[in-house]
């Protein structure tokens, strides 16, 4: 099977997956006591049976569940995510508004995590069982074990409140205008429009939350890089290259790294997917106006149209990243064939 066919097949599967996610949110929303009417209407209106009835008729809640489901799916398939109950905006416009903030933070975090994770992993593998290997291993386990919400509060306390080295919460300092909207990524927009003040300010706001978010992914990348490199180094072709007297540096960089890269790439991809969807707590603590914060607020007020929107966006992110990783396998390792 060729690449295009492979991608089409995976995209079709993704659509099925998204339908499944949408269905499960529908089922969950029907488990809320009283059809969820109570989260739409005021207590006074709730006491009036006529109003409740009229409301149910208006939104089709008086119809059988299966009819409701068909309506719901028909709207979703037409790309109509509906209106958020909490904000009153179209769900799509809320998503579009919040997404760039999340992309910016997630990209910064994955850059940090990849740089340090791969570096630590290579050092660990080359200096295997040395003191530095042991300490880096301890660092990576700490990275995957630390509760992010706690680390977030702690770094805010130390670096913002006590030392004053980093700015506080939010994307920009008060009094500094956000750069003109082009991509929605403030650092990039600031650079393009030549608004360097805004660029540096938003960059400094990225530092603390991205360090907090990077800790977990960095731990995973370090461990994977180390294990994968060690496995490659123990293979026959590396031993042959060593026996032929190849110096250590080209041996590592030209021969071992390429083959060790596939598991590392997978972890980086999965990590990026996690970051794009799993920043609920850190975004909330840092008052970062992204998808995570939107998710938190939507769930808290049981704003189901918005919950569906956020869930679909995150699930789609995962799926697209996974397809991308699978395609990259073939680029890195020509032996990989897409004929599963």
């Amino acid at each position: 099977m060729n690449l295009a066919k492979f991608i089409v097949k995976r995209l079709l599967f993704t659509v099925m997956l998204l339908i499944g996610v949408a269905t499960s949110v529908f089922i969950l929303s029907k488990m809320v006591p009283g059809d969820g009417v109570s989260s739409y209407l005021s207590p006074r209106s709730l006491a009036n049976e006529q109003i409740v009835e009229a409301f149910k008729v208006k939104w089709g809640l008086d119809k059988p569940l299966i009819v409701q489901y068909v309506y719901y799916m028909k709207n979703l398939l037409q790309g109509n995510l509906g209106q958020s109950i909490r904000t009153g905006n179209q769900v799509v416009s809320d998503l579009v508004k919040n997404y760039p903030a999340t992309i910016e933070l997630a990209s910064m975090s994955i850059l940090l995590a990849t740089f340090f994770g791969v570096l630590f992993g290579i050092v660990s593998a080359t200096k295997r069982n040395s003191l530095i290997d042991q300490s880096l291993r301890a660092v990576s386990v700490t990275g995957v074990s630390v509760p992010s919400f706690w680390l977030a509060i702690l770094v805010l306390y130390v670096f913002y409140y006590k030392l004053g080295w980093a700015p506080g919460t939010g994307r920009m300092s008060l009094g500094i205008q956000a750069p003109r909207h082009i991509t929605g990524l403030y650092v990039v927009d600031g650079f393009i429009t030549g608004n360097y003040e805004a660029m540096l300010d938003s960059l400094s706001h990225l530092i603390l939350p991205s360090i907090v978010l990077a800790s977990f992914t960095m731990g995973l990348i370090t461990r994977t890089t180390r294990a994968s490199l060690l496995e490659t180094l123990s293979t026959d072709y590396i031993r042959t290259a060593k026996a032929k007297g190849l110096p250590k540096a080209p041996l590592m960089y030209r021969h071992a790294m390429g083959n060790a890269a596939i598991p590392v790439l997978t972890v980086i991809g999965v990590g990026f997917g996690n970051l794009l969807g799993g920043m609920v707590l850190v975004e909330t603590i840092f008052a970062w106006p992204g998808i995570g914060q939107l998710a938190f607020q939507s769930v808290k007020s049981l704003d189901f149209p918005s919950i569906i929107g956020v869930s679909l966006l995150i699930a789609a992110n995962y799926a697209v990243i996974n397809i991308f990783i699978d395609v990259m396998y073939g680029v890195i390792d020509p032996r990989v064939r897409y004929d599963r």
């Binding site: 996610v21 949110v25 969950l28 969807g277 609920v280 998710a295 869930s311 699930a315």
Partner: peptide
């Protein structure tokens, strides 16, 4: 495929 934290929070 469902984001774990959101699913747990909704439940």
């Amino acid at each position: 495929a469902f984001p774990a934290l959101i699913l747990a929070m909704v439940i």
